[in-house]
């Protein structure tokens, strides 16, 4: 058998993306189109679905062109089945089903979060990592145990990305505010004590946000940003350290938009060093939603000989949790 290829389709939220990977998990092509939602945090499900439906044909075509392939050269199709926005998910699933049906290709529904996790593990070359996802949509600590990826800690209210973006908006910085907050925080000098929210291995950030917001105008914004960041990241790193000592893993994979923050990365490294644990983070472009994460998981399914789903059973699950998904390749 020659090289095999899986085409992955992502459409859980603002991004419609198609990618192709080979059986060594090399990225052959990677095309994305992100809906412009203006400067807001939330996204409109209907507009998003419309956008995805409009761009789907050209994104697919471009992905095939980039790879220099014809749709018939593909060995299987994978699509993000959830969690995410129903209307957006339906577009990706429909495109995937159409290809699978017309060209008689095996079809694999993929959990979006497991896409982030396995892509992190693959690109960093990690075998059995603790994965920390920090973005606008997620803040969770996950580890593979007893046949499944399981959540060992997560935010109980808002995500770390939301925290940064919502604070940024209050000081007039447009979405996404995280990178600018990092810059401003570097100029902070004085640490202001703020609510430190930890419950077991879980984070609580809303009290911190409220507190930081009400300090605006009363003290230097640099000091607030600095203290906000120090507090929020210390909570996350502490939660990660707790999870780490419980599951005793030797690698930490950091992913999601906030992983780009150097202060967070350095704190994570400092913590890990004391436990003799390796830390890696993804290249920026792989932190955001993409088709590669879906194609990679599709390929893992195919290589492990897992049964593809018949087209009529290829559904979406808006609320699916990582714990619900069987992992035949680990």
């Amino acid at each position: 058998m020659g090289r095999r290829y899986v085409l992955g389709i992502e459409s859980t939220a603002h991004t419609f993306a198609v990618a192709i990977v080979d059986d060594k998990l090399n990225v052959i092509s990677d095309v994305r189109d992100v809906v412009r939602s203006g400067e807001t945090l939330g996204i409109d499900p209907k507009l998003t679905a419309e956008h995805h439906a409009n761009v789907a044909p050209q994104v697919l075509e471009k992905a095939l062109n980039e790879a220099g392939m014809d749709i018939t050269d593909i060995d299987a199709v994978a699509y993000s089945m959830g969690p995410g926005l129903g209307p957006a998910l339906r577009i990706g699933a429909t495109v995937a089903r159409a290809i699978a049906h017309k060209f008689k290709k095996p079809l694999y529904p993929v959990h979006h979060g497991i896409g982030h996790i396995e892509l992190t593990s693959t690109l960093l070359g990690f075998k059995d990592p603790l994965v920390v996802i920090v973005s606008g949509g997620h803040t969770s600590i996950l580890s593979f145990n007893l046949g499944r990826w399981r959540t060992y800690g997560e935010t109980l209210d808002i995500t770390l990305g939301n925290l940064m973006d919502m604070f940024a908006r209050k000081i007039g910085i447009p979405f996404p505010g995280g990178p600018k907050i990092e810059e401003i925080a570097r100029k902070g000098r004085k640490y202001i004590e703020m609510p430190y929210g930890i419950k077991g291995n879980n984070m609580v950030y809303s009290g911190l946000l409220t507190y930081a917001i009400q300090l605006i105008g009363r003290t230097s914004v640099e000091d607030i940003a600095y203290s906000l960041q120090e507090t929020a990241f210390t909570v996350l790193v502490e939660a990660t350290e707790r999870a780490l000592t419980q599951v005793s893993k030797k690698e930490i994979g950091l992913t999601g938009g906030v992983a780009s923050n150097d202060r967070l990365y350095n704190m994570m490294c400092s913590m890990a060093r004391e436990h003799g644990v390796k830390v890696g983070r993804l290249e920026k472009k792989y932190n955001s939603d993409n088709g590669v994460q879906i194609a990679v998981v599709g390929m893992l399914y195919m290589k492990s000989g897992y049964a593809p789903v018949p087209v009529e059973e290829a559904v979406i699950k808006q609320r699916i949790r990582v714990e619900e998904v069987e992992i035949p390749w680990r």
């Binding site: 996204i43 969690p83 995410g84 926005l85 949509g137 997620h138 997560e154 995500t159 808006q318 609320r319």
Partner: peptide, 12 residues
Amino acid sequence: MGRYIEERRRRS
């Protein structure tokens, strides 16, 4: 609620 943080954010 805890399980569906994702969904809550999407709606906000």
